[in-house]
């Protein structure tokens, strides 16, 4: 793509709690498939999305093992979004709020995610063609 768009997103929802994080990933997947550049600022609970130590599990109530349960892990989706964007000529600049990560003990994240601060969202938005803030309330 000769002149790809750059879009910024802010997300504060953790995984496994709200449909907002699912819709957020759906938006990223579409944009990454188009080869857009993506600037992501994850803050508050949103820093959990890229937490490297997420683990799949079985479900004793349903009697399923890990393989059968095939539990979705957002950390994998983060990696796939980054890979999809790269494959299509785009790039993902994913910033986790460092304060938010420290508060929650999020000290290990997947490759391609870096630490930053709230001012980074302003920088990311200023460097983008458009922005979407997915607010929790």
């Amino acid at each position: 793509m000769s002149n790809p768009k750059t879009l910024a997103f802010a997300i504060m929802d953790p995984p496994f709690e709200s449909a907002r994080s699912t819709t957020f990933f759906r938006l990223l997947e579409i944009a990454a498939g188009r080869g857009y550049n993506l600037n992501v600022f994850a803050y508050e609970g949103g820093v959990h999305l890229s937490f490297e130590q997420q683990k799949a599990h079985g479900n004793g109530v349903h009697g399923t093992d890990v393989e059968t349960e095939h539990h979705p892990l957002p950390k994998i989706w983060v990696g796939e979004i980054i890979a999809t964007a790269k494959k299509n000529g785009g790039a993902v600049n994913w910033v986790n709020c460092g304060l938010c990560a420290d508060e929650r003990g999020i000290d290990k994240v997947v490759e391609g995610v870096r630490r930053g601060g709230p001012a980074d969202f302003w920088k990311l938005a200023a460097a983008s063609d458009n922005s979407l803030v997915i607010g929790t309330r």
Binding site: L7, I30, R34
Partner: peptide
């Protein structure tokens, strides 16, 4: 949902 990405772009 592509409609939202279209609008952003």
């Amino acid at each position: 949902l592509e409609r939202v990405v279209d609008a952003l772009a």
